[in-house]
């Protein structure tokens, strides 16, 4: 039986001590209300009311059960209100991932930008693209900030933002004298890049793009830590890719001529799992990255399209 519904009727009769007034309050007629009370008494196996032609009075059992019924019904109200707050994205927490090289300033700006948009608690984790995808898939992450390329087939995306890449060079390097650098000028130097396992597709894309523009690194050093990457550049013989936002001191940043390399970044979440908190996070990411100088990706893609007819083999 729908116990909570019958308890609501019981509560109305107990408060009015009159079946007619209770029925009016419940916007129903009296016979179904009487039947409901009888069913409830059968279900619980005790009489709740003593009634004669003129009077309705609570039994001892009825009085004590009334107290419990009030508690249960108040609990139901709280439960429904809580569910409603989750439904409207006003409660709980949002588990979000950001890439390790997003930068401290961006992380610092992200938290207030999100707080302005959502009352939900934001739990940020610093993890790479590959690991974010695994976490989004197993539901241990609600939303991520991902570097392209990744498999978008099961994800919804926020706006895609791009940042053109340049290189970090030792101050005294001859290439530092020019305002920009061609990729082909880097031949003979090693390249410092993020560990391949953290984003294999992007790692390979960077190396093939370098090769396409005439740069085949003498060696590829995998550095997960920006300090280690900086050390390798300072030691000489290597360059590191960098988006030019707050480059470290002691080295110089030079853009790459023709912007052959771009980071493309977007918020992403599993399809069908968009909540107001996810939307707030995606908007906050867009605001923060745009404020850092990243630009919307429209018109920047693609470079080397293949005839569509070649698919389907």
């Amino acid at each position: 039986m729908d116990l909570l519904r019958h308890l609501r009727y019981f509560l109305a009769v107990a408060e009015e001590l009159h079946f007619g007034r209770a029925a009016a309050r419940l916007h129903m007629s009296q016979p179904p209300l009487s039947q409901s009370i009888q069913r409830l008494e059968r279900e619980l196996g005790v009489r709740l009311f003593d009634r004669d032609a003129r009077h309705v009075a609570l039994t001892d059992a009825g009085r004590q059960i009334l107290t419990e019924a009030r508690g249960l019904l108040a609990g139901e109200d709280r439960l429904r209100a809580l569910a409603g707050r989750f439904r409207h994205g006003e409660a709980g927490s949002l588990r979000a991932g950001v890439p390790p090289d997003l930068g401290g300033r961006a992380v610092a700006a992200l938290l207030p930008a999100f707080r302005r948009r959502s009352p939900v608690e934001l739990k940020l984790r610093e993890i790479g693209t590959a690991e974010q995808l695994r976490a989004l898939a197993d539901r241990s992450l609600d939303v991520g900030v991902l570097r392209f390329p990744f498999d978008v087939s099961w994800l919804s995306l926020g706006p895609v933002l791009t940042s053109p890449l340049g290189v970090l060079l030792p101050r005294d390097h001859p290439l530092a004298a020019a305002p920009d650098v061609r990729l082909a000028d880097l031949n003979g130097l090693a390249l410092v890049l993020f560990p391949r396992a953290t984003a294999p597709a992007l790692h390979d894309e960077v190396l093939t793009t370098c090769a396409r523009h005439g740069y085949t690194p003498a060696d590829v050093h995998q550095a997960g830590n920006p300090e280690f990457a900086l050390g390798l550049v300072l030691a000489g013989g290597a360059v590191a890719l960098h988006d030019g936002v707050a480059p470290p001191p002691d080295v110089v940043w030079r853009p790459l001529r023709g912007t052959p390399l771009l980071w493309r970044t977007s918020a992403a979440w599993p399809r069908g799992r968009q909540t107001p908190a996810v939307t707030a996070f995606a908007d906050a990411v867009t605001e923060v990255l745009a404020a850092q100088g990243m630009r919307h990706a429209e018109g920047t893609l693609p470079r080397y399209p293949r005839p569509a007819a070649e698919y389907l083999s």
Binding site: L157, V160, P307
Partner: peptide
Amino acid sequence: ELPAALADPVVLS
């Protein structure tokens, strides 16, 4: 427009 759009992950999605 195809085919250029097929290299854009947002279009593919």
